[in-house]
Design a protein around this nucleic acid. Sequence first.
RNA 1: GGCCCCAUCGUCUAGCGGUUAGGACGACGGCUUUUCAAGCCGUUAACCGGGGUUCAACUCCCCGUGGGGCUACCA
Length: 459
Amino acid sequence: MASGQTKIRVRMAPSPTGLFHIGTARSTLYNYLFARKNKGKFILRIEDSDLERSKKEYEDDIIEGIKWLGLDWDEGPFRQSARTEIYRKYIKKLLASDQAFYCDHSQEELEKEKREQMEKKEAPKHICHRKGKAKKGIIRFRAPREKIVFNDLIRGKVEFESDLLGDFSIAKDEKTPLYNLGVVVDDAEMKISHVIRGEDHISNTPKQILLYRALDLAIPEFAHLPLILGPDRSKMSKRHDSVSIRQYREEGYLPSAMINFMALLGWNPGTEKEIFSLDELVKEFSLERIHKGGAIFDLDRLNWFNSQYIRQMNLDELTKKCLPYLPKDVDLDYAQKVVALEQERMKKLSQISETTKFFFEDDLKYEPELLIWKKMASKEAKANLELLEKKLSEIENFDRETLENEIMPLAEKYGKGELLWPLRVALTGQRASPGPFEVMEVLGKEKTLKRLKKANNAL
RNA sequence: GGCCCCAUCGUCUAGCGGUUAGGACGACGGCUUUUCAAGCCGUUAACCGGGGUUCAACUCCCCGUGGGGCUACCA
């Protein structure tokens, strides 16, 4: 057990078998917050011991994702694939003391045994009575029969009967550990004080405790996080829509929004504050306030956080971030004016390509009916557009204020809806958009007049 | 099936024996308004069930029920 003086050392140990997962990201965040809050160290370890499924591109995606979120680590990344000599030492020790042995039962035999046990309503487990004398088959751990109790920092006392575990597998061969042994060896070697991980690992914990004991290693504290759930309340996985950080990144979610949102899924400081910077989270964070129950990933809430952070951003920065969603050769000043009009309306950056299309197209297509306000006659709309065209052509300064001062009196006279609606639709071609004055200011006189003429012809 | 974990509005949650059960997202309504957003105001909506313990249970205990996780020569 870690004492008060023990240095806090935590780790994140993702396996590079898929894109950086939202659940992994939240665990990373919590580990990071705990480390920073307690002036400890945060270690990154890539669990790539399954060479078949591990891929460099996934490792890159995970590391990139962590950095994108604005998190960093103090040691690593270590890779299990580079640590085989370390594992060999421990596996040999277990073998030599007869706590582990080679088991050469085939997978078919094991599956058959399991099926039979389940039919008899027994706990499925393999207790090996055919210990290989040769170095053949898989290496199993001879689990002692005892009660295993550990104190989970989030859940309290958790008890298991090791009897139920059977002789579980720990390595494919002397240099290739399986998950449970790999974690134990690495966590011990890296002097990890607190293992903070998803709840799906609770059932691995007794196996790992047994291994710590067998190898005479110090057992860390454990804290099992509630899971992030899909809308169907099951663990978020590939069969749900968007589970990778990359997808959110590409859709235009801000790291600050992701961090804020994820932090509050399963934790909160007990106040009514909702918006937190990473630094503020570090200050407030505590394991004690983490929930036990899983939390559903609510996209509406994420969208809300994202819109909050989009609004807070300064315009230069926001424009830069929007560039990928705007036409390639766009003029930066023009783009900035466009973005300014959308800043308060955006839920995510990617939306801007649709909502601002009309700013970048010269040839708008008009549905004649759309140009007409409510029940006004087509003739009237036409007349109003002509009136506007004439008035606008006399105005030199196309800034919002001048435009408003010149046009609003007309609108009062001829009807706001009757005048302003056809104007706005002529400018945008859309049912919904920012107001006509803002749009004209961005478009400028020439484009404005051209659009009015064209709309008029469509009627 | 076995083992383990969990349980307050639709969702994220506050609550740690005595509260009109609070906030946020969403939804809905209103104001504003040429439209759509935004903004402001308001409405809706929850303690899974049953036993205890207690003067008093959302809160503590037990049992149900429900949900979830694990059950690999994956991690």
